[in-house]
Nucleic acid binder design. Structure first.
Lengths: 230, 230
DNA sequence: TTTAAAATGTATATTTTTTAACATTCTTAA
DNA sequence: TTAAGAATGTTAAAAAATATACATTTTAAA
């Protein structure tokens, strides 16, 4: 499943100096999960931080009818739940394992002790938290202000930046729609229009971006209210 | 103007021990702005942190047509722009002064020096950043998942928690609509329905919540997908 | 190679939301 | 007390998005 937050934010562990990362691993418990297994539930209040070691963690909110909204895929090195340590808030997401997954789990008390001795930890946490709210703010703004076509262009552009190949994105249209919070039909209409503008090409399970610069220009001209000037 | 983020998040300066707050004030430049004056523009890239001393700062995004979306009012003690210090991101918002306003401005270099010597700073920054993204995530989820009526109920409930008087909110419907990202007409329709359910009472420039517990119950039953269990 | 499943493409009816326009109510300052 | 402005209330038409349904294309497995 796709994700805006994950795709743009750096992994927590990657921001740590190797020796600090080692201490984090040392002080935490490695827990293994099988595909689909629950790692945490929305509403849990036991504070602690979780870091993906291998596999992936799918964060979302499961509705009463079983539907899931706003899915986020967290990969190796990425953390979640850290806000429970610094605030008194309950967990916002249901998180399940995607495939065989290993998670470093650390309780709040252990983490706090490490945190007090390793100033590098706070930098890494701050950077991820600040980038996350930055991205969320931009996304919120896009949802409120931009029509679906523009929103789609924007997410494609940001994904092409971070994905392996800037010219091709492998993803289902239904997943993209999910992430943008719109119906597949609406998304398809938007994508069609972008394809007519020659900004993208639609394929089976993939979207090609033959000239990323063209897309970037278009996004800059159509999606930025007071364009992010230099 | 109303704001979800501001209403729920603690002020940065309030999270600092008095002696650290004093050092922050000491190391920054106090700048005065008159009503409506620009404090920063979207796209600015000079890194630094700003803290409101008196008055208020209005953060929003000004569209090409002059319209403003997602307005946020920051009051005394609240900070903005700190993410520019820890990431390489340009500023996301246009910020203007509301009335006579004083802002503590600190450059990135100065702040970083202080940051390295005062571990308490990182805790305060982390807490505000984490709370912010928590609130943003919940808001994003609400926008995607909930109809307007439910969204309105949710914001009213959260505001009644934090406002001075839990039984009365003084706000224009147009402001509320703005914050929720819907038209005034749609919001009015939603509020009417909540009023019919006897959850709220509508007045001129105010919304009364005669029995907050009733509203909370309703929100818990209608707005929480997998209810935030205990 | 055939078949089933997955994914995309498309049309239409329905619902939701917005825009625009205007009436009404409330507040405040002359 | 009255007039002007501010805010809310209401309606109808237009636009946007969704749901439903089904056709087509692509992939991969039997």
């Amino acid at each position: 499943m796709l994700d805006l937050v994950q795709l743009n934010a750096p992994a927590f562990m990657d921001l740590l100096p190797p020796e600090v990362a080692k201490k984090v691993r040392r002080d935490s418990t490695l827990v293994k999960y099988t595909d689909g297994q629950f790692i945490q539930s929305r509403g849990d209040s036991k504070p602690g931080i979780s870091i993906v070691r291998s596999g992936a963690a799918n964060a979302g909110i499961i509705g009463m009818d079983g539907s899931v909204s706003m899915t986020t895929l967290l990969g190796p090195g990425q953390s979640f739940g850290e806000f429970t340590i610094f605030t008194e808030l309950p967990r916002t997401h249901d998180v399940t394992a995607v495939g065989e997954t290993e998670i470093y789990q650390m309780t709040a008390t252990r983490f706090t002790r490490l945190y007090d001795n390793e100033p590098q930890l706070s930098r890494a946490l701050l950077k991820t938290a600040l980038m996350r709210s930055h991205i969320l703010l931009e996304m919120l703004d896009a949802i409120r202000r931009l029509p679906i076509r523009e929103r789609a262009a924007r997410i494609l552009q940001s994904m092409s930046h971070t994905a392996g190949n800037p010219n091709k994105l492998e993803c289902r249209q239904s997943e993209l729609a999910y992430t943008l919070g719109v119906s597949r039909i609406s998304l398809n209409r938007g994508l069609k229009q972008l394809a007519e503008l020659k900004l993208i090409e639609l394929g089976y399970g993939e979207i090609r971006i033959p000239r990323p610069a063209l897309l970037s220009d278009w996004v800059a001209n159509h999606c930025n209210p007071a364009p992010l000037a230099s």
